[in-house]
Design a protein around this nucleic acid. Structure first.
Lengths: 126, 126
DNA sequence: TTTCATGTAACTTCAATTATTACATAAAAC
DNA sequence: GTTTTATGTAATAATTGAAGTTACATGAAA
């Protein structure tokens, strides 16, 4: 598929697609070709790519919207709050990333297939 | 303490302090007084206020920085992705909020006291 | 050599949070 | 009672980070 087609699918801009897909290409998950008949093609075994890997490949974006205002404050109150929150966030992050490590693109593809089949047999507007 | 003093402590603006403290007042955790000798005063048992409660009082702000682009997409691929992520996020959120429910302001105060003592006896620049 | 597609830098928009201004209200000090 | 000090709150401005867009270079096939 071309960046343009992908962008249309995702309601975004082709350049945004290229930016993100570029990271996937560096990681070897997809290949790209220029010119006629160019575009993007999967080059990985979907069963071996986990959401955990994708998160890493995409730069480990921050998981939590809440964060410390200051990582190394002099203020002892702030230090105590940070310590408590860091502990809580670390545990929650571990749970999330373990879960991510357990989900492969093949799993998502299988779920998609299930939904597609369900839509075909009588739930056209699911 | 006045909003002005609190704002100085937190490197923010007095009005921001009032906005947030106002929510705590509605919840009965603090009282405020106007005029001379006015300001904010704690009116709750620190041992009975948990971070979980504070999170609720402050409007349950979003915990995760990553979220679904669209909660109810027609696209079946997006539906499959959302389902997988929702499951992972729900688990992680549960862990975080359980942890929050286990931490009281008294715990934070105790940790602060520990740090204060440590600073006094030979770690002045901790 | 024209067309189509990616590669990438630079810039613009957008949305959400935070900060600020402005002014009303209330309580104590004088 | 009038001045000072403080909160209450609406309205606006500034800031920030992500997303979107433009512009142009590069490369491959028709």
């Amino acid at each position: 598929m071309t960046s343009e087609e992908l962008a249309a699918c995702m309601n975004t801009h082709p350049v945004v697609v290229r930016r993100t897909m570029g990271l996937l290409r560096e990681a070897g998950l997809v290949r790209s070709a220029r010119g006629h008949a160019g575009g993007w093609r999967i080059s990985a075994d979907l069963g071996k790519v986990t959401l955990r890997q994708l998160h890493a490949i995409l730069g480990e974006p921050a998981i939590f919207a809440i964060g410390n205002r200051n990582e190394t404050p002099d203020c002892l109150v702030e230090q105590a709050v940070n310590a408590a929150l860091d502990d809580a966030f670390t545990r929650a992050e571990a749970v999330l990333l373990e879960r991510f490590a357990d989900i492969t693109l093949a799993d998502l593809a299988a779920d998609f297939a299930r939904r597609m089949a369900a839509r075909r047999e009588g739930h056209p507007h699911a």
